[in-house]
């Protein structure tokens, strides 16, 4: 990786920016996530977190096992609000929404 290599594609964060942040004293993924917004974009950290963990390891000498992943936040992948909205039990459009049916077939649950 060179200095300009993009580590976080969602937020356009480069290798050098991560290195500078670690040098500033932020040596956990939780802190770097909040400082640089890595892991807050559409991929939710799937692309960048392991790469950043490696940078922390290189800079601090800590073992990868000691570098904890930030808490995983639901939903696991981006889901439109409309799907959850139509899922609400008893809501007017629950019965008419195909997405809602698909959703129920995956996650279970029933109408009023």
């Amino acid at each position: 990786m060179d200095d300009e290599t993009i580590v976080c594609r969602c937020e356009d964060i480069t290798y050098q920016e991560v290195v500078d942040t670690v040098d500033e004293g932020y040596t956990t993924l939780d802190e770097i996530k909040r400082k640089l917004r890595c892991g807050m974009g559409p991929c939710q950290g799937r692309t960048c977190m392991r790469l950043i963990a490696r940078i922390i390891k290189e800079k601090t000498g800590r073992h990868l096992d000691e570098i904890l992943m930030p808490a995983s936040r639901p939903p696991e992948k981006p889901v439109p609000l409309g799907i959850f909205a139509s899922y609400e039990v008893g809501s007017k459009n629950a019965r008419n929404c195909k997405r809602s049916e698909q959703f129920r077939s995956i996650f279970g649950g029933k109408d009023e």
Binding site: M40, R73, P74, V79, P80, G82, A85, E88, S91
Partner: peptide, 25 residues
């Protein structure tokens, strides 16, 4: 929460039904 928030916010702003939720906490 996810259901309640989604159903209420899409009632306030219907076009948000196509907006992706990235995370809740």
């Amino acid at each position: 929460f996810l259901e309640k928030m989604a159903s209420t916010i899409t009632r306030y702003i219907p076009s948000f039904k196509n907006l992706n939720v990235l995370r809740q906490w």
